[in-house]
């Protein structure tokens, strides 16, 4: 009796568990959605190689005939690409370094040192994630303009040295919290102070999460639009994002050039993404830890 029950039970599981048909269906849906999601990028690339004449054919054609490679040099002359790239880097590099320094220091102070009020202070800091950026932007803008830093990169860089993106402190703290406490204790017995523990013990084992923060904050700086828009006036100081926006206003209907210029700002991001996508995914996954 019980043996019979067991076999039917086994049969039931065997019957239900493989789900080959379901998996095949999921695969098919995945392929379809991938194609649909890549369609805009195909449209981008196809448009960026076309002549003006062909781009205004309807229904649209997919293969550029002929391939017009000149779109790229032309777009890159209208937007002084190398100048803007350099400008973007002048903001991006110090911002990323500043984020790494200020956020990892803070994350260490919020995770591996025990001091009264620590979690309260961190909670208050974290609650600013809910703060709409625009509300602080206006007075901050007035402050920077009062002390004469409008049209410089100072307002774009300095906040990152002050742990501006609390999210990264959160991310690093999550990681630091899960490191074994023995690491610190062993070093402390050897007479190391917290700064030495931080520098010689914690940072070296945290390389992956530091890379995540570097990548995500670099991406932020590359994509940032509102800040440069507000703080930068002279066109020779534009970032790539700002330059591209300005270009859009000037060349409204030259879609092939606009698409070529957009491609140029996207490609570096894609390269970094493909080189480091493990860290991207890891970083985003970590941010959702403990919901």
């Amino acid at each position: 009796m019980s043996a019979m029950e067991e076999t039917s039970f086994k049969e039931m599981i065997l019957r239900k568990s493989p789900g080959v048909g379901k998996r095949r269906f999921a695969l098919l849906v995945c392929i379809t959605i991938s194609l649909l999601m890549m369609l805009p990028l195909a449209w981008l690339v196809r448009s960026s190689f076309m002549e003006m004449g062909q781009i205004f054919i309807f229904p649209p054609e997919w293969i550029p005939q002929p391939f017009r490679f000149e779109n790229f040099p032309e777009a890159l002359t209208v937007i002084p690409f190398f100048q803007y790239f350099l400008n973007t880097m002048l903001i991006l590099v110090p911002s990323v370094v500043g984020t790494l320094v200020s956020c990892s220091l803070a994350a260490y102070g919020f995770s591996r040192l025990n001091w009264p009020g620590r979690d309260l202070v961190f909670g208050v800091l974290l609650s600013t994630l809910m703060l709409p950026y625009i509300i602080t932007l206006l007075p901050t803008f007035l402050m920077w303009s009062r002390i004469g830093f409008i049209d410089t990169y100072v307002p774009l860089v300095v906040p990152h040295w002050l742990g501006f993106h609390v999210f990264f402190i959160f991310l690093l703290r999550q990681f630091f919290k899960n490191l074994p406490k023995e690491l610190d204790e062993a070093a402390e017995i050897d007479g190391a102070n917290p700064l030495q523990v931080f520098w010689y013990i914690i940072l070296p084992v945290s390389r992956p999460v530091l890379l995540v923060v570097a990548i995500l904050s670099g991406l932020n700086a590359w994509n940032d639009f509102l800040d440069p828009l507000v703080y930068i006036n002279s066109s020779d100081k534009y970032t790539l994002a700002l330059g591209l926006a300005q270009f859009t206003g000037l060349y409204t209907s030259q879609w092939n050039l606009l698409m070529a210029a957009s491609t140029v700002i996207i490609v570096p991001v894609l390269i970094v993404f493909f080189l480091t996508q493990r860290y991207f995914i890891e970083g985003v996954t970590m941010s959702g830890l403990k919901g």
Partner: peptide, 10 residues
């Protein structure tokens, strides 16, 4: 030490 570490962010 804690306050020192978090001083930039705070």
């Amino acid at each position: 030490w804690g306050l020192g570490f978090v001083s930039l962010a705070v």
